[in-house]
Structure formats: structure tokens, C-alpha cells
Design a binder for these strands. Structure first.
Length: 405
DNA sequence: CTAGCCAGAGAATTTCCACT
DNA sequence: AGTGGAAATTCTCTGGCTAG
């Protein structure tokens, strides 16, 4: 005897027997947005929903003084047009309060025909593969009404299951935004602590000796960088890491630099003003992007967009790393340069900073700040994990592979 | 070798426009 | 008024040359 499967094969994949595949018009009404560009003003009463609004989850807003296409509570607003490989195509926004949004052209409003299904529809329609396959990666994509009319959606027959799925996913969203809020709060706290600890305004217990002002060139030997001639092939792709500001910004605030995207040869190093910076120095961008720092955990060379600090024996390198970050605004004020900012070595060397002469106190401050960094990194890892978990849950719940009721 | 000089690239997004 | 493209604009980010 053959076991009867609890799943059936459909055009949207295998779904449970007690789910249906419906066409979008069976569950919601389609309205195309209207042009509001002529009525945009800061004092406008309505939020104009364009692709940017949706792609930033409602963060970036423009206002319109008129409303040709109002969105209602529980409407799902979706981006209909995007350029090839656009990230906003078919991205959705669930309206939580009516009377407020003016739907712009190239965005549509989907109004659920029955109550309580909005949450489920939002999660299943947002970036739904059915819509994404209209993006051929070559020409601009326009999702039109007929596309929406033929969109199949898998829907549990039980309204309880619909709400349970939407509930579980919105719980995950709530968890994610609370993690984001916590991370933002910890960041603020760290900035405040840096302000306090690195100016001597607040002292760590057990330290009381005087702080003093010192020139930066008293703390470290300041070295510049350079670019070996790019027309000479044998200077490049060697075994010496060569750092550009991009390598630093790509660390995204990470403290240690251990690899660079480009490398030079020993001959390239000798035939340019680049120099080898020993491990545990601070490299700092000094052109265009000013004052972004990292500690190199390998010997490294840089281009001329850097000033690099090789710390003297009396300087704690981690302390110097944090201290330089608090000086960023000051460095920017020192900058010259017509097309983009640049800080000169002379000015930098003479720049004075307050610090404790006790290396122990420097180390204690660096440790306190490192601990905060570690805590932030843990939280960020948890946020990323939660995000991955939500993706997995969507896959399971929206296909009925995992059942909640 | 350093300081100064010079916008440019590429992506994202909005706006325009000729045509149904 | 809606469509299908494409152009224009905006935004972000950063490289390398060379005179002195």
C-alpha cells in the first residue's frame, strides 16, 4: 500500500494539500500609482511612495501636497519598475497607517480583498521570484497589470495559519529591529566613552597622574606612502601588501588590517616612495577620506593617501588607534586641497593631543574600548545570524514545509 | 621624496520623451 | 494616460602624476 503524500505539486512548487494556489486578483485589488513629481514639496502633507522610499524601507521620504493615489491600511505597495538587476524590483512595503501615503507612478498598491491576509501576502509577495524573473538583466523591467493578474500565490486555506505565519515572520522583524536599536545604542555609548576616556575627562580607577599635551610626532614616527609606476608590470603583484583607502573602508570599522586587494614587489617598493610599515602600526587615510584608521597585523605598504604611525616604545598602539579616531574632525579642519581634502605631514606632525604619560593607563583605556568593540561585534554577529534565520524561516513557512498550526 | 594638483568612475535613482 | 526606453542627475567613493 502506498502512503498518500501530504503535499501536492503545483506551478509554485510543492505545497501542502490544504493550501491553494490562487491568482493575485482572487486575493487583492491592483491599483497603479500616479505621477506626483510636480507636487513634491517639503511641506507636503503626504508621503510620496517611490522606489527609493520602498528600497530604504521607508527611511528616505519625499512629500507631496496632493494625493492622486492614496494607500490604505494593509495595502501592499510594490516597486514595478527598475533598471537591470535592480535591487528594488518587486520590493514591497506594508502600509500600517492609511491617510498618509501617495503612491507614485511605477509603484502599485495591492489592496487585500479580505482582512487579515495582508501580513501573509506581504511576506510572500516581497521580492517574489515570480516577479524577479521578468528582470532579464539587460533591459529595464516594467511589471505591468497583466503580470500581476497572472501572479500565482500559495496560500494556506486556514486564516489562522496565514496569521500564524505572518506573525512568526513579523516577530523576527521585530527582533531584528530591536537588535539594530541595541547596536545603535551601544555604538553611541562607545562614542561617548571614547570622548570621556580619551580626553581624560573621566579617569579609570587607580590612575591619577597628570595628562600632558604632545605632538603626534612625539608618539610615533609618521611615514607616508606612494604608488610604484603603474606602467611597469614588474613592480606589481608581488609579495608585499599595498594598501589604498578602499582597503580601509572595506573593513567597515574593523580594527585590524591583514590583507590588501593589491600587492607590489620589492623592486616596486624600492622604486617608489612607498615604504614598508612594520606590524602593529596605525595606518590612517589622509586624502579624500580623512582619518580612517586600522592597525596592520602584517607588514604593509600604502599609497600616498595615507599617513602611517609607527609607534615609539612609550606609546600603546591600540591607544593610539583610538586616540587618532577622536581627532578626525580636527584633522579635517587642518586639510587643504581644492578638489578633495588632504592633510599635510607637517601639520599632522605638529597636531597636539592629550594623553597619559603612563603606558599602563594607555593600555587600560585601550582595553576598555576594545571590550566595547568586542561586545558590538558579538551583537552584530547575532544580528546577522538572526537575519539568516529569518531567510530560512521564510523558505520553510511560505512553502508549507514547516507548519505552525 | 613630498606637496600639490587634477576630477573621474560607477552605481543608484529620477526625469524626460517619443510613441501607443 | 500608459509604456518602454534612455538620458540626465545625484551620490559615493577614491588614484596617480609631477614640479620642485
Amino acid at each position: 500500500m502506498k502512503l498518500k503524500s501530504r503535499y501536492k505539486q503545483t506551478e509554485v512548487g510543492a505545497i501542502p494539500n490544504d493550501w491553494d494556489v490562487k491568482l493575485l486578483p482572487d486575493v487583492c485589488r491592483f491599483r497603479s500609482g500616479k505621477a506626483h513629481e510636480q507636487y513634491i514639496s517639503e511641506s507636503g502633507e503626504y508621503v510620496c511612495v517611490n522606489s527609493k522610499f520602498i528600497s530604504t524601507d521607508g527611511q528616505v521620504r519625499k512629500y507631496s501636497s496632493v494625493n492622486f493615489c492614496p494607500a490604505y491600511q494593509d495595502d501592499i505597495l510594490m516597486v514595478m519598475s527598475d533598471l537591470p538587476n535592480g535591487r528594488a524590483l518587486a520590493k514591497a512595503y506594508l502600509v500600517k497607517e492609511g491617510q498618509k501615503y501617495a503612491v507614485n507612478q511605477r509603484v502599485c498598491a495591492l489592496t487585500p480583498l479580505r482582512g487579515n491576509i495582508a501580513g501573509y501576502l506581504y511576506y510572500t509577495l516581497n521580492r517574489n521570484p515570480y516577479f524577479l524573473k521578468f528582470d532579464d538583466g539587460v533591459s529595464q523591467t516594467h511589471l505591468l497589470n497583466p503580470v500581476f493578474k497572472k501572479c500565482p500565490v500559495a496560500i494556506p486555506q486556514s486564516p489562522d495559519e496565514q496569521s500564524a505565519i505572518a506573525g512568526a515572520l513579523s516577530d523576527m522583524d521585530a527582533l531584528l529591529s530591536s537588535l539594530d536599536a541595541l547596536i545603535a545604542k551601544k555604538r553611541d555609548l562607545k562614542h561617548a566613552s571614547m570622548q570621556q576616556l580619551l580626553t581624560g575627562e573621566t579617569r579609570l580607577p587607580g590612575f591619577s597622574s597628570e595628562w600632558e599635551m604632545k605632538r603626534l610626532d612625539q608618539l610615533a614616527s609618521i611615514r607616508s606612502g606612494g604608488t610604484p609606476s603603474t606602467s611597469i608590470g614588474r613592480f606589481w603583484d608581488g609579495d608585499i601588501p599595498w594598501c589604498t583607502p578602499t582597503d580601509i573602508t572595506q573593513l567597515n570599522g574593523g580594527k585590524y588590517l591583514s590583507k590588501t586587494s593589491r600587492t607590489i614587489t620589492r623592486e616596486g617598493l624600492l622604486n617608489s616612495s612607498a615604504e614598508l610599515i612594520p606590524t602593529n602600526s596605525v595606518v590612517m587615510t589622509s586624502r579624500a577620506t580623512i582619518g580612517e584608521c586600522a592597525i596592520n597585523s602584517i607588514p604593509i605598504s600604502t599609497n600616498q593617501g595615507f599617513k602611517n604611525f609607527v609607534p615609539y616604545a612609550s606609546t600603546n598602539v591600540e591607544f593610539l588607534y583610538y586616540l587618532l579616531q577622536t581627532q578626525k574632525q580636527g584633522f579635517i579642519r587642518l586639510c587643504a586641497g581644492s578638489t578633495f581634502l588632504e592633510i599635510s605631514k607637517t601639520q599632522l606632525a605638529a597636531h597636539e593631543v592629550p594623553l597619559p604619560s603612563s603606558k599602563k593607563e594607555q593600555a587600560a583605556i585601550a582595553k576598555a574600548l576594545s571590550d566595547m568593540d568586542a561586545e558590538l561585534a558579538t551583537l552584530e554577529a547575532r544580528r546577522d545570524k538572526t537575519h539568516a534565520l529569518k531567510q530560512g524561516m521564510m523558505q520553510e513557512l511560505l512553502t508549507g514545509k514547516t507548519r505552525l498550526v
